[in-house]
Each structure stands twice: as C-alpha cells, then as structure tokens.
Nucleic acid binder design. Structure first.
Lengths: 293, 293
DNA sequence: ACCAGCTATAGAAGGTGTCTATATGATCAA
DNA sequence: TTGATCATATAGACACCTTCTATAGCTGGT
C-alpha cells in the first residue's frame, strides 16, 4: 500500500497546479515535492501530471486519482477539525449518571457552570439508583457517575467528593421540637417522610434505627427531594433529607433541623468512572471542576 | 496537518483491535505501531484507544476519528484499485481521432485487436478533418490522432506511420484503360470522382493537376471511401482512392488501377499526440501496436 | 504463583525524507 | 536570435524520524 503521506503532497500539488506552490503550502522545498510525486508515479507505474513551464496539469489518470484523493482528503480534514473540536470542548458530549437526589441538588450547579463555559458540549444526565449507574458506566452509556459512597467494585475508579450529612427536618407545625434533642424512639411518635426505597440514604437511616432495635416505618414515601421538602414545610411530617440540600430552607426558617441524641453517619459523594477507560475530554474537564475530598 | 501515514496505522489498529495485529498487517513491529498511535494521540491531545490486556478499544474520541478515517481509507483503497486497473488496461478509455478515410480502412483492424485484448477499455473514435483532429487533441478531447502527413504544428508530437499511395481506379465499364498509361490531360476526358473538399488527398491530387497547368473538376464529390469505391465499380466514373484501401477490389478485379505518366506522390500516415503531454496507459499501448515508419 | 499475551518504554541503527546546489527546459521580451 | 525569468528535474549530502531490538509492566487465566 502506498505511503498515505504522498497523497497529501499529490492533492495539494493538484489543487495548486504547481510543485513549487505545493512546496510552499507544505513548508518543504520544491525538490521534495518533485520527489514525492515521482514516488507516487513510480508506485502506480503511471504518469499523474503533465509538466509544463507554468506548472503541472493532471493527466487523465491523475484526474482519476485526484477525484478519489479529494474525497479522502476532505474526510481527513474534517476529522482533524472534529478532533480539535472535541479537544477544545467545542463539541462532543458529556454523559453523566446521578443517583438519587444528587442529580438535582448536587450536580446541577456544576453542570450549569460547565454548560455556560462549553455550550456546544451536549450534556446527557441520566438518573438512577447506584447499581443502575454502575451498570450504565460498564455498558459505556455514561462517562461518569455521581453516587453516594461507599461503592465497592473492582472495575471502578472512585474519586471521593464532599461529605454530606443527612438529617431530619420539620416545618412550623412541629416548632416545639426546635432546640430539643430527641431520641430515635421518641422520633417515631411523629409521622416520618422518607425517600423511596432503594435509595442509599433510605438504607442508611433504616439501618441506624435497626441498630437500636427500632423499626422505622415511614408515613410517606416520596420519589423526589423536592416533595420531601414540600411535605415537611406543610407539616405533613418530618422528612429525612440531606442537610446541604435544604440550606436555603433552614436559613429562611421554613424548615428547622431536629437534633437527635445519636449521630447520623455522614456519607460521601463519590465520582465513579471505569478503571482503565480513558475519559473523554469533556468528562475529565468536568471532573476537574468538582470539589474532591 | 497530521502525517497521513499515521492514519493508516490508526485505521488498521482500530479494525483489528490490537497493536500487535496491526503491526503484523503492516509488516512492522508492535513498538512502531505503539509509537505511531502515540504520535496521533499527542497530535490531537486526545486518547484514541483504551488499552486492555487483550488489545485496544477505541475511546469515544477514537470512534469519532475512526468514522472519518474509515471513509478516507475506503477512498484511498478504491483509488489504488482504480490506478492498477488503468495501468493494466482493465479500465479507462482510449480516445482516437481519425481523419478522412483512415478511420475505417487503416485504424479499424488495430482497434479490433486492441479491443479484443483489452475489452474493458472503452474506445471512442471520432472522425474529422485533419485540422479538426488537431483541435480535438489540443482541447484534450482525444488522446491521439491518426492523420495524413505532413502535419506542421509545433505543439504536436508526430510519429511517422506507413506510406500510402493514392491512385485512380475504375470498374469494368472502362476496361479499355487497363494496361494503358494515361496522361493527366487525357484522364480529364473521363468523369472523375473525388473525396469531399477539405480532405488531404483531395488537396494533393488537385495540386498535382494544377502543377501541370490543369484543373481537376470532379463529376462527383463523395463523403466516404465506400461510396468512392461503389461509384467506380458501377461505372459512374474514375475514383481517386488510396491503393491500400482497395486491395481487395483490385485482387478480385472488380476494380483496376489506371496508370498515369506522372507519379502520384506518396503520403504517409502520421500518429499525432500533444507534445509534452503524457499519454494514457491505453494510448501509449495502442501506439506501440501501430506499425511505424 | 506462574505463564501467555498484550502494550509501553528505552536506546540504537538504518532508511528515507528533506535539504542545497545545480541542471534543464519553456516562455517571453528585446 | 539572446538573455531573463520561472518552472521542474536531478544529484548528493545530511539529519531526522521511523523502525528495530530488548525489556519491562500489566492483566487474566490456568
């Protein structure tokens, strides 16, 4: 197979109709171009150019070759443009999986900043449980996942993100509980609102109660953090939410935290990727912007 | 612009999913392939392959690049096939211009042989006067022309072909002239049939008469050699034709030559091409088969 | 734990692309 | 014609870069 590099010289020579001009365009000397063309011609056993005193003209065979090489050249040029686009985040896509509530409350601000800086990178955000996110990763459907630690999977590369703290919050209806320190047992006298099953936080808090010989049976089971907050505000019960996600409500005192006499374990956000699988330019740039451990 | 040769390595590596296999396919060593891929990756600033213990897998960016390079590779492969086709006369075309009667009576046998040997070369035969043929050549509409010498044009490359001899022939009606040697003057007593104006042979013979102070005014002016022969056979007059083209008729004695007391100048077939313009593979092969000087 | 198979790395050597210098040819103007 | 200009071709030298050998490192399977 002929040295592809020769086609580059051939193409430019044909386009410019001159060995010397092609040489300038390629930042090499005219004898080099002459040599390259000769190699092509000898390789095919055909003359490709007719040499005149004003430059060169494609022969019939040269025209045929040119029509093919032109296509190839176009594709390779496009390829280089596209690559630079991907490299400079002027294209491509960022596919992220977020588990539970992390999607909206944790990820969203970073995504907004990223999108503002790289508006041409398409962002795909998929939502799912931690195991689903892991599966998506392994199937190559997403570039990275944002889940709660711990995640134990030998195939995954885990970057530790910030710590988050879950807590119970209530609205004004239960104002009398503000300032008090409740026991787990006492808390059960109130209607409890939890995130739906299969969520990491749900497992964690249920486990805490079980460790104390108690059963945490929620009055409501909701599918979104927004609803948890809303229900608590309107006094339908006491919601178990991530403290960092209700900062605003705590500040404006539409919600207040209910202190317990046992500590609720913190959990950590983890950014997971496939081990040994190179990240896309977009993904690695995005990860750099997320505050880690 | 990136060295096109690297794309060849990239493409094969992607296709085979392995640096080592690509190395074998390219008859180089694995480290060379590794090096080439690294050059590409550094050139783009992007990782193109994910390395595993079983080989390599395209990254997202690699997939994008591959989709472009695949197209380019296809075109370049096609180009090489096509070139070999042209080189081996399994394709392409042969465009010939023949003046006057030379087309049918001189060229045809060679064209038949050529076509039998290279059935995939398309043959275009155009007919015209010598100046027209020359014009076609200069316009690039034909690859070579077959005309009567002399042709004087600085831009033309002329190969001298066989000598041909024109003569006057008649059919049985003028049988009494057989064996006689006529003067030009005496010949004018008979009805003369000539090829149409603007033909080389017409100029030649009219000139000969003029040199002897005579005017050659034909009874008939015909546009084809076949008609000249036919008219002579049926006794409508004495035709001026190329001796070589009536060999059959002379042999079977349906025509006989009329000898003159002055020699009619011979003329030579010339194969003309554009000077400095490389011939197509088909054209140069064809010319080799024509008997020259 | 070891072997097989893959890729990465380092350093050396050879080949090839590129250079400079010059030749050759065509065109054009005087 | 002659000389000037501009094009490509050729020759030979050099330097870079591709490719090589040798080896290390890693992974997965036996």
């Amino acid at each position: 197979m002929i040295n592809f590099e020769l086609y580059k010289v051939f193409y430019l020579t044909a386009q410019l109709g001159s060995l010397s001009k092609a040489a300038k365009a390629l930042y090499i000397t005219q004898p080099s171009v002459s040599h390259a063309i000769k190699q092509l011609e000898e390789g095919f056993g055909l003359e490709l150019f007719s040499r005149t005193s004003k430059g060169v003209v494609l022969t019939k065979e040269g025209q045929v070759l040119h029509s093919y090489v032109e296509q190839a050249f176009t594709f390779l040029s496009l390829a280089e443009d596209k690559m630079s686009e991907l490299k400079n985040l002027e294209g491509g896509e960022l596919r992220i999986g977020g588990s539970d509530s992390l999607c909206k409350h944790y990820l969203l601000p970073y995504l907004e900043v990223f999108h503002a800086q790289h508006p041409n990178v398409k962002i795909h955000l998929v939502h799912g449980t931690t195991p689903e996110i892991v599966t998506y990763l392994k199937e190559g459907k997403i570039d990275l996942g944002v889940v709660r630690m711990p995640v134990n999977d030998i195939q995954l590369e885990v970057r530790e993100g910030i710590l988050i703290q879950d807590c119970f919050v209530a609205g004004s209806k239960y104002r009398e509980l503000a300032g008090q320190i409740l026991s787990l047992e006492k808390l059960l006298d109130y209607p409890i609102i939890l995130f739906s099953r299969n969520s990491h936080s749900r497992y964690a808090i249920t486990g805490l109660f079980r460790d104390h010989g108690l059963v945490l049976a929620p009055e409501f089971e909701l599918g979104s953090v927004d609803l948890l907050i809303e229900f608590a505000k309107t006094g339908l019960g006491i919601s178990y939410v991530t403290k960092q996600f209700v900062t605003k409500e705590l500040e404006e005192e539409s919600l207040f935290e209910i202190k317990l006499d046992v500590p609720i374990p913190q959990s950590r956000v983890g950014i997971i990727t496939l081990k040994n699988m190179p990240l896309t330019s977009a993904a690695s740039t995005f990860i750099e912007r997320i505050p880690l451990n």
